[in-house]
């Protein structure tokens, strides 16, 4: 078995420690977050409030030793509240740029659908370009940079739903879900873990994350699996329920996320199961259904499409 993947053991240890000590019952969401981090993508958490979305983001940033910023979106949030703005410095007699919360490694954007479309698009542009331009001056964002946005799927009043084109910017969309019964009881008994958050020691350094990302991008994706991803994307485009299926960006995201899965499994090549594992968190939210099928669950439709695509095993 090849185990020359940089810092693979360390990342696994990090996952283990977080999920066992701080984020019990959120292993799946945590894993998705790490996959997004490793494949240089952003994460959208779609779930009802109070299931620990913020906790997850906080724990992740503390354990990674990365800086953390947070934006609580409201309908009067302005783009400059995110990117920052220039203030006139009387002493120096010049304008000085005050960085907004976006200049952090990990940015938690809570209830992104409450922000106005103007603000949403300003932030999503920054996510894609990795830089912010204010008053003609361009400021690069720190590396690594990852947005963890949350969205409440049930509350619709006073929200601006993310348009599908913007959803495409997120590598992974996932829910957190309720913890298992025993765990939930334990959490009720002990109370939240927000206090424990402060004691989380950084486990992985920024440099190590950089190197791990390098290793992930070097993982081998065979032509057969490229073909497999293409076939899945093609099947979603041909499906009778969809207006448009997985975009090329979606297919690229699937490939890079599958590489990250292979990395976590300590493999230097991708197998079809990796693709199947990330297919629905990576691709489901990118499907656009015909109006008459809009009520359908996107994840389920994607799973049913996956059933029809044969896995290349020869």
């Amino acid at each position: 078995m090849t185990s020359d993947l940089a810092h693979q053991a360390k990342i696994l240890h990090f996952l283990d420690r977080l999920s066992n000590h701080y984020l019990q019952g959120k292993i799946r969401a945590l894993k998705m977050a790490v996959i997004a981090l490793l494949s240089d993508g952003h994460l959208l958490l779609e779930d009802i409030p109070g299931l620990g979305k913020t906790t997850l983001a906080l724990a992740l940033s503390s354990a990674l030793g990365l800086s953390f910023g947070r934006i609580q979106c409201t309908s009067d949030l302005l783009p400059s509240d995110i990117t920052g703005l220039s203030i006139f410095d009387r002493e120096l007699n010049t304008f000085r740029f005050i960085e907004g919360p976006i200049f952090n490694h990990i940015l938690l954007v809570d209830e992104i659908n409450r922000a106005m479309p103007k603000t949403q698009s300003a932030m999503l542009e920054a996510m894609e370009e990795r830089k912010v331009t204010v008053e003609g001056k361009t400021y690069p964002l720190p590396e690594p940079f990852m947005v963890i946005a949350t969205q409440n799927p049930t509350e619709q009043i006073g929200t601006y739903r993310l348009p599908e084109s913007q959803m495409d910017r997120f590598l992974i969309t996932t829910g957190i879900g309720y913890p298992p019964e025993d765990l939930e009881k334990a959490i009720i008994r002990q109370g939240g873990i927000r206090k424990k958050m402060n004691e989380i020691e950084p486990i992985v350094s920024r440099i190590e994350i950089e190197e791990a990302r390098q290793a992930v991008s070097g993982i081998h994706l065979s032509d057969k699996l490229v073909d497999y991803i293409f076939k899945i994307a093609h099947a979603t485009r041909e499906h009778p329920f969809t207006v448009s299926g997985i975009s090329t960006r979606g297919a690229i995201s699937m490939a890079s996320a599958a590489r990250a899965v292979a990395y976590l499994e300590n493999r230097n090549y991708v197998i079809p199961e990796d693709i199947k594992l990330i297919a629905s968190p990576v691709a489901a939210h990118r499907l656009i259904f015909l109006p008459e099928h809009e009520s359908l669950n996107k994840q389920e439709v994607l799973q049913s499409i996956l059933q029809t695509v044969p896995v290349p095993i020869v």
């Binding site: 081998h220 065979s222 057969k224 493999r267 230097n268 197998i271 079809p272 199961e273 020869v314």
Partner: peptide, 28 residues
């Protein structure tokens, strides 16, 4: 997939096969 099959059957022999065969197949 082969690994999926092996996991479902819970057969160590199948798991080993999937591992060896898969590594050759997918790392070409």
């Amino acid at each position: 997939g082969l690994n999926e099959l092996a996991n479902q059957l819970q057969d160590p022999v199948c798991e080993e096969f999937a591992h060896i065969f898969g590594s050759a197949l997918y790392s070409e």
